[in-house]
Design a protein around this nucleic acid. Sequence first.
DNA 1: GTCTATAAAGAGATAGAC
DNA 2: GTCTATCTCTTTATAGAC
Lengths: 189, 189
Amino acid sequence: MKTISRKEEIIATATRLFYEKGYTAVSMRDIATAMDIKAASLYNHIKSKQEILSEIILKVAKEFTDGMVSVVTENTSAIKKVEKVIELHIDITVNHSEALAALNNDWMHLEEEDLEAFVKMREDYEENFRIIIKQGMDAGEIKSYHPEVILFSILSTLRTLYLWYQKRGKVDVNILKKDMVSVLIKGIV
Amino acid sequence: MKTISRKEEIIATATRLFYEKGYTAVSMRDIATAMDIKAASLYNHIKSKQEILSEIILKVAKEFTDGMVSVVTENTSAIKKVEKVIELHIDITVNHSEALAALNNDWMHLEEEDLEAFVKMREDYEENFRIIIKQGMDAGEIKSYHPEVILFSILSTLRTLYLWYQKRGKVDVNILKKDMVSVLIKGIV
DNA sequence: GTCTATAAAGAGATAGAC
DNA sequence: GTCTATCTCTTTATAGAC
């Protein structure tokens, strides 16, 4: 049993609304109304609308970054690493599906250091994935297509998984992992 | 040489801005400033901001719908049809890359009949793709994974192609088609 | 911790001059 | 076809009472 603070409640409500309509289309009034309070009351718990967006996006972005670092430093085959990355995405999708809408579509509305931090994390993430794929090609585990096509093809599927996961009414995670790994990997091996 | 009307110019400008920041984050003043005129002048050519969004999204949505209908009614193998669908997406991406941002991210801001029309087109499109995949499974051309996983996996890659196409600085279309078909098809055959 | 009231800025859209 | 001026509404955010 964990207690949820008022601030966390605001962020959870905002996350859901941002998922439905996007950051700019959701007003502070919308968030407050959904919580049955007035917009002014929100400012007792958070500093600004911007802060809400930052908390939603950066928290999940850090999970991706940490997960990827842990995968890339493992001492296993490239294919095994790709599998782990797929599983990482599925786990995060299952736990934070609504936050991924903001991460994918509203990151450009971050400001200053938050924007910089996010862009850097995303670039590092892609670069690590690229390294894994090239490692797999060098080892003869992965077919030598254009590496960017493989990178993009897998990543775009994983990044939009949250849209599909919501719609399908939450498939069993283990079945999802198995099928997803098959479809995405068997294509490049 | 085709002359571009003022209305088309407005739509082209809005398309670019919507691509960069999203529909709700772009104001009529933003569009006007980018064209070096005043916001009020826009209304001599268009009825509302909504109308701009509709024109951008529905035009491209119709291209997808028409293209898919023409593919699905062809008398060829399922695999050949999947190839044609991939090529359809690549052609539309090349010609309307910026409009695809609005189509993917801002369709929920359409109103009334436009929203209904769009949702119906998208559902029909997915259903036709589903039919092709099932046809391929029945014929033994496509591996019997969960059909929704295959559908989602290919479609999510194709739908976000516009993000990647912009970033890569416009790869040669024929090379893109060949590699994309390989990566996406060889995975399911 | 929530409220009312309100400030200050910006939104979409219209009227009417030129 | 574009302009200035303006209307009306909504936005984020703050001040201060309770």
